[in-house]
Amino acid sequence: MNRVTAKIFNIQTMSTEDGPGIRTTVFMKGCPLACLWCQNPEGLSMKIHLVHHRLRCIGCGTCRENCPRGALIFTEQGIVFSSDCRTCLTCAKACPANAIRVIGEEITVDDLLARLLQDLPFYRNSGGGVTFSGGECLLQQQFLLDILPRLKEKDVHVCLDTCGYISPEIFREVVPLAQLVLYDLKLFDDEKHRLYTGVSNKLILENACWLGRSGIPVWIRVPIIPGYTDDEENIEALALFIKKNLPAAQRIDLLGYNDICAGDYEKLRMDYPLKDTPRVKESTMMNLRRIMEQSGVKEITVSNFEKGV
């Protein structure tokens, strides 16, 4: 029995945006970056989060009664978990209405594998498989080193969705075990990269170059964030970088900004830096797509933009 565990925050079946075919996406906790536009703030840390689901709450107070540390505060905006909370999860387990959501669980290789294999027929018929995302999946490399070969054994196609900010040693050890990499390229200018994601892009670009030489299939993802990454300069620089270092990339996806995650920030009581950011205009997106053609990559997709403007 394999005792290696991972901290994850979601297993999403029927994923159609995380690689080819129909997939199951495993969202792993922890990330070395802190992008201002992060879609999954609950994946940033290894911490387990407790979130109060107001819609489900029936106000019975069972949670408060059961809390050993008196850490639950009832406010008008819902339940707040004070600094006394040690995430023992007693409240969540006691709640009859499933109104306290636990974001983050620890799961063994065996258990996760069993879950992932449930959808084999869907993978088979669609050319799909499993995608590891998050957060940054490569942070939990031991887990990946264990589970990836076992998925391969079962003929399950594996895709790694990574930001590339990880030591080259780990990168080069884990990545070859997958059949496809979804690689994020956000900002070419290093200073801006530090400012908006918290880290330098040097390592990311270095790993990207290696990836380009490795022959492993790659899809490149570029988040188009108004005011941050959507300037022509940035896209052109990325296009040229790709042309030079990842000429064999199978496709580039320009992903327009969306703020569906705003609610999550609220629930986690985190500030959402990109409040009030508008959506990407169609004209902007089409222009950026045109510029990205300089990469030489034939297939460039665009999504999530305001049509007709």
Binding site: T16, L55, L255, G256, N258, C261, N304
Partner: peptide, 13 residues
């Protein structure tokens, strides 16, 4: 379903 993200509509703000 939104690109890259999947949510229960009634749970959103």
């Amino acid at each position: 379903r939104v690109t890259g993200y999947n949510a229960y509509f009634v749970h959103l703000g």
